[in-house]
Each structure stands twice: as C-alpha cells, then as structure tokens.
Design a protein around this nucleic acid. Structure first.
Lengths: 220, 220
DNA sequence: TAGATTGTTAATCGATTAACAATC
DNA sequence: TAGATTGTTAATCGATTAACAATC
C-alpha cells in the first residue's frame, strides 16, 4: 500500500512535470504524423520532420523524450507507433462522448466536421432551446430540446459538452452542465468561463484573438 | 534620405523587438478592457486587472510598457485610453475589409457573429462554388459565385480572405487569392498553409488542437 | 562493422516575476 | 504632502538549442 502510493505519486508528478509548452505542441505533431501516414510514410527522423514542420530537430527529440524513448538510434521514429503513442497521451484512446449545446450554424458546422472523429471523440447528441431548431435533423442527429438535457446526461456517459451559445447564456449553462457531472467544456462563446467547480476542465476557443493577431501582422 | 532610412530602420526594429509572447496576450487584454468599459469602469490598476485576469500585475505593467507609458503613477490606467491604444497596435483602426470563401455552416456562423465588427474588420462579401448556395442570402449578404472572385477583388479593396473550405480545396484557393493581391488569410481548413508568397500573412485556426488539449486535461 | 540518428546533458536564450525608485 | 501605483531594473525561472556520447 505504501509502495503503491509512492509509485502513484511518482507517476502523477512525472506527468505534471511535462511542460505546458510541450503539451501545446503535441496536437501539431499528431496532425503531421497523420498526414505522413496518409502518404504511406512509415519512418521519419527528427531531421526530416523538423524540415517539414519548421521547428528544430533538437526540439522534436526533446519533446518526444518527455514520454520515454519513442525512437530508435540510427533509424528514427516509426510513424505509426509514434502517432498511436501521442494519441494515447492526448486521450484519443479514451473515446470520450460529447454533446453539442446550441445547434445553430456553428454547432451544425462542428457536427458535420471530422473534428471529433479524428480525435476519438464521439458526438452523441445536439441540444437547442429554440422551437424552430428542436426536432430538425443536423448531420443525422435529431436536435433535442434543452429540457431533455438532465435526463439525457443521467442516462448516458457524457464527458464533454460543446458550447455554441451566446455570451449571456453560456455561464448559466456551464454551471448547469457542471452540476450534472460533465467533466469537460469546449467553449465557443467569446467569453472566458471561470467555473466555481474546479474539477471541470474548460477550453475556451477565442477565434477573435486569432483574427486580431492576423490584423496585427498585416499592420506591422 | 539617409536619415529617413535610419529612422525607418529604428522604428521597424523597435516594432519587431516586441516579443511574440506579449503580442499573443494583447487580444486578451483587449477583451477584458472592453468588458470593463461595458461595465462603466473607466480606471483600473495593474493590481486589480491582475486579479481579474489571473496573471501577475508585474506582467501587465511589463507588457503595456513595451509600447510606451500608457499608465499614470499613483492612478493606474485609463480603461478607455488603453482600450483604444491596444486597438491601434492590433490594427483595429485600420478598418480592413474581408471576404469569406465558403458559405457553408461555418462561413455563415462567422458572417452572423460579431467577430469582425468588434475588431474593426468589415465583412463585404461571401463566395461559394456550389449552385445550391450561390444567390442565397446569408446574414444580409447575397452569396456570390466564386467565378466573380477576380472581378470583385480587383474592384474592391479587400485585405483579408476567410477560408472555410475543405482541406483539399484550400491550397489552390490560397494561391489564387495571393495572386490577386490579398494580404491576409484566415484559414479554418484543418491544414497549415505554407504559401510561396511570403508577403501574405496567414493565421491558421486549428480547432481540433483545442479539443485535443481538452481531452489531454480530462485524461490527466 | 560503419553510418546514422537518437537520448540526454550542458549552454544559451527568452520570458516571467520581484523589487523598488520615480512620480503622479 | 502622503499614498498609491507605475515604469524599469535586476533576479529567477523555464524553454530552446547545440553538442555529443550512446546505441541501433
């Protein structure tokens, strides 16, 4: 028991020791590796990958080594293996279920896109509050009434809620979802959610920030 | 002439000396300052703002000082003035015109959102290649045929093109737009654009990366 | 074996934080 | 003036790059 605790401590601190900078780069590696696989490239060296991605080979080796030796001296990296490993680290193999709250244009666009499937996330339902939208079919899903939310979440294993609501509606909805035990919120409302419940993980998508950076670069 | 060159060199190197880390944070300041203005808060200290934004007061002062003294000792910062100044730096006052290529769900969602207006960007037209969509009205814009693109860009001052196309169509379109003299691309296709023309500024929006980070945090 | 390329340490670089003098 | 808070320097911290020994 004491030994187990010790081991767990070691593991969890090892995980949190991986720098945020590295984590932020992993999805990009994942994208490039998928592209390589699609082109039937099964082996790549840090040098080749560095040219492709416009980063240093040193950084690639350093990054990948945070999680143990994924490569082989004199050979490079096995693309398929590496893709799988990074997917594991990023939780692709967890097969989380997700629901979309707000079946407007953005919600519909997300429902139709391969963004979930590619990352092992399964979209299971869309909800909306507008009678015009409830009952409509969106990418094969029949939009449910938001009144059914509690029932649905209790009877299904939902880990992620995608929020494509207006700014003023999103805070209450986030608290409602947190109360239902949802563990992750993917927030597209242009406001930062700071929930009272610290167990809930939030990713705020700020598309406007990206547009501003573009404008900055144009101006510069 | 020699003096002018010298001055220009000084200025441009001064601008590029502002660290990327600072630039990346400016849009977030901009958002919080707008929120403050909306709540009629006209004055704020780095200490108060730091509590609001969950960053150090030291960082706020350091960041804002890259562009000169925006604050006043013993008083703090004038919210309205600061908002305006950051807007200037980020190009809000340039009033760029933008067009959307691809009037599907995502294009329509962007057209309906306040994302452009809030940052001084004016959306002037939407284009699509599908006969089903051409001629339809989206947020008050009549969707134009992509065949009209060349004509339109030549007769209008378009700085930014928003790309909401599929992965396979986006590269050709990006080159076509670069050829027409478009200076900025806001790319929503989940692929990185690396144009031959280095004058064109590209911002790639990778929503999938954000979803993966969320999954990572859920798994951790 | 020889060549190639990783894993890993040490050096450099940049970004963040702390501290305080300047000053409103 | 006294109090408050900035602007700015110096110290710390973290992230990136360079270099090379280990090893496939």
């Amino acid at each position: 028991m004491a030994i187990n605790n010790f081991i767990n401590d070691e593991e969890s601190s090892a995980k949190s020791r991986v720098s945020p900078a590295v984590i932020k780069r992993l999805p990009r590696y994942y994208r490039y590796l998928r592209e390589l696989l699609q082109n039937d490239i099964l082996r790549i060296s840090s040098g080749e990958l560095s040219k492709l991605m416009h980063v240093t080979a040193s950084q690639i080796r350093q990054d990948l080594n945070c999680f143990g030796g994924f490569g082989q001296q004199g050979y490079g990296y096995n693309v398929k293996y590496l893709y799988g490993k990074i997917g594991e680290i990023l939780g692709v193999t967890q097969h989380y279920n997700a629901i979309i709250i707000g079946a407007g244009n953005l919600g519909s666009a997300l429902a139709a896109s391969p963004v979930f499937e590619r990352r092992g996330v399964k979209l299971t339902a869309l909800f909306d509050s507008s009678p015009d939208v409830i009952g409509r079919s969106v990418s094969g899903y029949t939009v449910k009434s938001i009144d059914e939310l509690e029932d649905y979440v209790r009877n299904n294993d939902v880990s992620i809620a995608v929020l494509t609501l207006t700014k003023d509606a999103v805070r209450d909805m986030a608290e409602r979802l947190a109360g239902l035990g949802i563990k992750g919120l993917w927030n597209f409302a242009s406001t930062e959610l700071n929930l009272s419940n610290k167990d809930v993980v939030v990713q705020n998508v700020h598309m406007g920030d990206s547009l501003m950076t573009l404008c900055y670069e144009l101006t510069k």
